[in-house]
């Protein structure tokens, strides 16, 4: 690392702080999408359309915030729109001979396209932002204060991952979702309506993905444009596999991916410009690495819902 000219007296610590701060800032959409996908996949369906839901959530949140002047109204509308996308996926999936993966890809393109169509008018105006809580106000260091500027949605997401982890074991709804995802036969024998449970689970997943989109456009990066997601919704789906369908692990994995995403900007801010694109690719490289590391020709993935990926 010769020739590195670090600003201030923090040296490499500033990179670390920036990565931690970045992890908290960048991870929130990952967290919401992956929690949503966890609910959906635990019920036995894959919704790859969450990337489109994320983008549409970002657009609809931004547009609503511009029009109403309220960021929270934007979040609500994004959640609602995401929920509708999820229900659409779930509803089409119950038709005969529909494959959830292929449908997810179609809905991904549909959601993004629809967002671009309606979002054209909202690229210019500026919207109110979501509030953040300055947990770093005790410190004199600007970097610490910046890193600990934590958005409310991140805290809600953290609480939600604990809640979902608890709910999957301790509530009737949680157990029913797991049963439906693990054995349709058993679920039917107990008299549960498998399609209905999956419809609602996919809808709930869509709500969370929509809210994740609201965070993108209303906090970080905090504006609406067509390249806003850059595939974060798809990576979050991979992250669910990495997290073994466990909401708590989703939280950790989201932080890890967020930190990897913050690595590029953090290094750039301290003047490392070599390998710029490589560092920006860190989350994608990490996704690939995770998929390779967790794959095995001989062993089924522990914790995978039994009905996942069953072709019709």
């Amino acid at each position: 690392m010769s020739g590195l000219d670090l600003p201030g007296d923090l040296g490499l610590w500033s990179v670390l702080l920036a990565v931690i701060g970045g992890a908290i800032r960048v991870s929130t959409p990952f967290l919401f999408v992956s929690l949503g996908e966890t609910i959906t996949e635990r019920s036995g369906r894959i919704n790859l359309g969450l990337e489109g839901t994320l983008v549409f959530g970002a657009m609809s949140a931004y547009a609503t915030a511009v029009l109403t002047g309220s960021a929270w109204a934007g979040v609500a509308v994004a959640g609602l729109a995401g929920g509708l996308f999820g229900l659409l996926h779930g509803w089409i999936c119950r038709l005969p001979r529909v494959n959830d993966v292929a449908l997810g890809i179609a809905l991904m393109l549909f959601g993004s396209g629809l967002a671009f169509l309606f979002g054209k008018a909202f690229i210019q105006p500026s919207a109110p932002q979501l509030p953040a809580i300055p947990f770093g106000s005790w410190s004199d260091l600007a970097q610490v204060r910046a890193a600990l500027q934590i958005n409310v949605l991140f805290l809600i997401g953290a609480a939600l991952s604990v809640f979902l982890w608890w709910a999957l074991r301790n509530t009737r709804i949680g157990l029913v979702v797991r049963i439906v995802g693990d054995s349709t036969d058993a679920a039917r024998a107990m008299g549960y309506d498998v399609d209905r449970v999956r419809l609602l689970a996919t809808g709930a997943g869509g709500v969370l993905a929509g809210i994740g989109g609201a965070y993108l456009s209303l906090y970080y990066p905090g504006s609406w444009n067509e390249g806003i997601s850059s595939g974060q919704g798809l990576m979050a789906v991979a992250l669910v596999v990495f997290a073994r369908w466990n909401p708590l692990a989703c939280f950790g994995a989201a932080l890890l991916f967020g930190g990897a995403g913050a690595l590029g900007p953090a290094l750039q801010s301290v003047g490392v410009s070599q390998g710029y694109y490589l560092f920006y690719a860190a989350p994608y490289v990490l996704t690939l690495g995770v998929l390779i590391a967790t794959s095995s020709p001989n062993h089924a993935l522990a914790g995978a819902p039994g009905e996942l990926g069953h072709a019709k």
């Binding site: 009737r172 797991r178 036969d185 679920a187 107990m190």
Partner: peptide
């Protein structure tokens, strides 16, 4: 054929 849910514990299977 078994109607138990494989990933659930025995206790979870009984209660649900």
């Amino acid at each position: 054929h078994f109607t138990l849910v494989p990933s659930l514990t025995g206790a979870e299977n009984l209660v649900i």
